[in-house]
Design a protein around this nucleic acid. Structure first.
Lengths: 212, 212
DNA sequence: CGCACCCTTGAAATTACTCAAGTTCAGTGG
DNA sequence: CCACTGAACTTGAGTAATTTCAAGGGTGCG
């Protein structure tokens, strides 16, 4: 339970564990924008996308959440969920009911620091995203995205997600995403392995990511 | 003292007010990236930009902060400032020493909700930025930026900032920013008033902002 | 086996970038 | 008071990159 990492046994006993570990398949929806916020989640494994819809129906992916990240913090302020959260691949999360956190929060001051850390992490992630994703040619953006995923993958292998998702993350069209990825395959920067899985030349990616 | 909006008199008496109201001129620096975090700020008036530097020396503007916004929250986690904060025009801020907040935070649980609200606001602002700024043609982005500024300005008037800043906010070059603004002037979407000040046709802007 | 759905590819058109040269404007000093 | 200077803004022309629209593959699932 990453959220309670620094709470000791006594604190835990307060909880009575209505906390569940939930398993999600790829494309499972954790929650939708506007759903009543019943719980906060922490990611134990897998990869979750936070999606925000634009007025015209298109969607932008606002963050990727991986092991140790938190989502749904806004419910602690009695708000509805402000994004849609969807698993990009099989994932395991801790689902912590809102009132558990709220009650603990009143009783154990130590939790406050943990919560602030979580909030801070969200902001920092968002700021990185703002800085890196929309800058430079599409080629460099895709390279940066790949590098970011590789960061928590063993070896140089990773799953590619759909071109549409890549586009929604980088602010380019699906076609451009496809073209860039196709080019990377041609130039051997990424090598197809199992279905949807590729091996990446990190050195080459780092070079490409620098453009711009 | 917006940060303490919901604290009552008794709480205030705890503080002994080492809190100052600071006045800044345009282009004043509140703090630089990496400075030791001595205080949190809230904006009472004016406009502050949060800047993040890229490895190649260029800069991206990550957020605009206006009345009621908070900056520097990361210092509550004993971190150094993670952005540079610069006044875009004359501004007034409350400067609240870090340990004041930290001490109050231990003593009055009510502050926690306020702090969480602040964090939430930062995340929400960042997410809006991610969603709106890098989407669509430059013309639409500039329009959205203007609309956002107009939102807290009386009438339809506002100050334009430098083309370089506009570029750093929208992820376009200075020249493109200049061209778009020039075009807006030609097509009467914005009308020059006093120096640097313009009157905007909000209806037209809203129409242009939709192109995406 | 066939039907979706996604991915790929092409060609034209748009848009933005680069590089480079003017232009305006505010502030400075004569 | 006016010319001067430097910085910011504007503009142009050529080039590169991306989008658009459209059509053609591939693949997995029923």
């Amino acid at each position: 339970m990453a959220l309670f990492a620094d709470l000791d046994e006594a604190d835990f006993s307060l909880i009575h564990l209505p906390i569940e570990e939930v398993h999600y398949n790829a494309d499972s929806v954790l929650y939708e924008t506007g759903d009543e916020g019943s719980a906060v989640f922490t990611v134990r494994s897998g990869l979750i996308k936070l999606v925000q819809y634009l007025s015209d129906g298109t969607q932008r992916i606002v963050r990727l959440l991986r092991q140790g990240d938190t989502l749904g913090l806004e419910v602690l302020l009695d708000r509805n969920y402000e994004h849609a959260a969807v698993a990009l691949r099989a994932a395991v999360c801790c689902r912590i009911p809102r009132n558990v956190v709220q009650r603990l929060s009143e009783e154990t001051p130590r939790l406050h620091r943990q919560l602030m850390l979580r909030w801070h992490q969200s902001v920092a992630r968002a700021d990185e995203w703002i800085t890196e994703m929309p800058t430079g040619p599409a080629r460099a953006r895709v390279a940066r995205l790949l590098l970011r995923i590789l960061h928590d993958e063993p070896g140089g292998d990773c799953d590619l997600f759909s071109r549409e998702d890549v586009g929604a993350m980088l602010g380019v069209t699906t076609e451009t995403a496809s073209r860039v990825i196709a080019e990377f395959k041609r130039t051997q920067v990424i090598l197809p392995a199992d279905s949807h899985r590729v091996h990446c030349d990190e050195t080459a990616l780092r070079r490409i990511a620098k453009d711009a």
